[in-house]
């Protein structure tokens, strides 16, 4: 539902925002929805900001224009009538969007990401374990990653595919991601975890279905 809006809302500025870790350069439907939400909020905020500054400026530069506004109009208008509809609309949209992003419904392939200072160990649906900081997934379909930690809190974040989820010792958290196309998508630890936090990178390699199946079979 957000896709057409995304195309319209994404400005030319975007060209300056590309990057292998950029949330503004989404490579999957989930990250794209989040980016759209951002652009919409940015434009809305810019308008509100301009309004506040303009009113402040008018108090000094064009006092006659604003002198007739009554106290009730200032407080009720600015404090209640202006923000309440915006907040209801925004919070409602975010709630619906958040619900859509949740890992629920028909369970797709499930991978594991186990953080240990300062690397990521991945497990595959067939139970295999690999610790070379690369996770292979199929492109074009949602997948789940179960995130856990062996020591301190880390956070699993592949910005171009979707949001982040924390890896907390004693807990397991699930996140659903999806890549549109085969390719390499970089990820990193987003929660400060000590001196190796800087370099706790990993990457997700998305493959076509055939390649992924071959890879899984070849590895066995």
């Amino acid at each position: 539902m957000f896709k057409p809006v995304a195309l319209g809302a994404t400005p030319l500025l975007l060209t300056g925002c590309t990057g292998a870790l950029s949330t503004l350069d989404p490579a999957g439907p989930r990250a794209a929805n989040l980016a759209t939400l951002w652009w919409v909020m940015l434009y809305g905020s810019a308008l509100l900001f301009a309004l506040v500054i303009a009113l402040f400026a008018m108090a000094y530069l064009r006092p006659a224009w604003v002198a007739r506004i009554t106290p009730v109009q200032w407080i009720v208008g600015g404090g209640l009538v202006l923000p309440i509809p915006i907040l209801i609309l925004l919070t409602g949209t975010a709630l619906v969007l958040g619900e859509q992003l949740l890992p629920r419904g028909d369970a797709p392939l499930r991978f594991g990401a186990h953080a240990e200072r300062w690397q990521w160990n991945f497990t595959y649906p067939d139970g295999r374990e690999m610790s070379d900081d690369v996770l292979h997934i199929p492109a074009g379909q949602p997948i789940d990653v179960a995130v856990s930690s062996a020591d301190v809190i880390h956070s699993f974040w592949v910005p171009r595919l979707g949001g982040k989820i924390d890896a907390i010792p004693g807990h397991e958290n699930l996140i659903r991601l999806e890549a549109d196309e085969p390719g390499t998508y970089w990820g990193q630890c987003a929660e400060y975890c000590g001196p190796g936090h800087d370099s706790m990178w990993f990457r997700i390699e998305a493959h076509t279905d055939e390649d992924f199946t071959a890879l899984m079979e070849g590895g066995q």
């Binding site: 949330t23 990250a31 929805n33 989040l34 939400l37 951002w38 909020m41 925004l90 919070t91 975010a94 709630l95 969007l97 958040g98 992003l101 956070s155 974040w157 910005p159 979707g162 949001g163 982040k164 989820i165 987003a190 929660e191 400060y192």
Partner: peptide, 12 residues
Amino acid sequence: AMVPFNTQAHDS
């Protein structure tokens, strides 16, 4: 405060 956006922006 919007949860979905927060999952991208948090800790960044």
